[in-house]
């Protein structure tokens, strides 16, 4: 059942492998750049466009996605040999939906403003292709610890991209960072903010530029 879904690069595990062996470091490092979920696999674009107008909600979203990815990967990996093949997608969905609802409830209790601001986007983590993609491609065929690392790596890969986009959008669109007026603090009173950056179009442009820079450096080409 797992052969078809496991990644091809699966290496046979030796006994008592180091906690952070080279192979495991690669599991975390790959999604940060060479195999980035947003810029290379082009997954999770929706939320990358929608939540990135300001740094603060973006950071909350990033933490939420990392949490959901790590724990869904762990849970699915733990029960991977019990999951009936025919209903595996539904099982994955149920686990992800439960974790997302938990995140949403915690936000509602402890950070109501953030809950209101992010409301539908937190719910939409359920349909974020990165989460389901990793469950299907990795957690179903790998051991729990490796799956945690894979979830963490992909979560971080997603996070740094949306944080980078939010950085430029908030800076150029509102002249602020985390709500702090950067340009005013530097003594520039009349910084011309760019309204385009506040709209999703601005996110597209910045994402495009990030992909351009990244591919120019790594030499990656679409096949």
């Amino acid at each position: 059942m797992s052969e078809e879904t496991a990644e091809k690069t699966l290496v046979k595990e030796k006994k008592a492998e180091e906690l952070l062996s080279r192979r495991r470091k690669k599991i975390i490092a790959d999604p940060l750049n060479d195999d980035n979920p947003i810029t290379v696999q082009v997954l999770g674009i929706c939320s990358a466009l929608a939540v990135t107008t300001q740094m603060k909600p973006t950071l909350t979203m990033a933490v939420a996605v990392i949490f959901v990815m790590v724990f869904s990967n762990l849970l699915i990996s733990l029960i991977r040999n019990l999951i009936p093949t025919r209903v595996r997608i539904i099982v994955q969905l149920a686990v992800v939906a439960t974790l997302v609802t938990l995140v949403s409830e915690v936000l509602k209790a402890y950070s109501f403003d953030m809950y209101k601001q992010l409301s539908v986007f937190v719910g939409l983590i359920i349909t974020n292709c990165i989460v389901m993609g990793r469950l299907e491609a990795y957690a179903l065929g790998n051991k729990p610890y490796d799956s945690i690392l894979d979830g963490l790596g992909n979560g971080l890969g997603y996070s740094w991209i949306i944080l980078a986009i939010a950085f430029f959008r908030e800076l150029l669109g509102a002249g602020k960072l985390f709500g702090f007026p950067v340009f005013e603090a530097m003594g520039i009173q009349s910084f011309p903010t760019n309204g385009l950056m506040v709209t999703p179009v601005g996110a597209f442009i910045i994402l495009g530029l990030i992909i351009w820079v990244q591919r120019a450096k790594t030499g990656y080409v679409e096949h």
Binding site: T98, T101, L102, E105, V106, K108, A109, F112
Partner: peptide, 21 residues
């Protein structure tokens, strides 16, 4: 079960948040 447990546990805090809001 997990979800209803979380819902019960977080209810007081959520009510307070809604009141403040």
């Amino acid at each position: 079960g997990l979800l209803s447990l979380a819902n019960q546990g977080l209810k007081p805090m959520q009510d307070k948040s809604i009141e403040i809001d």
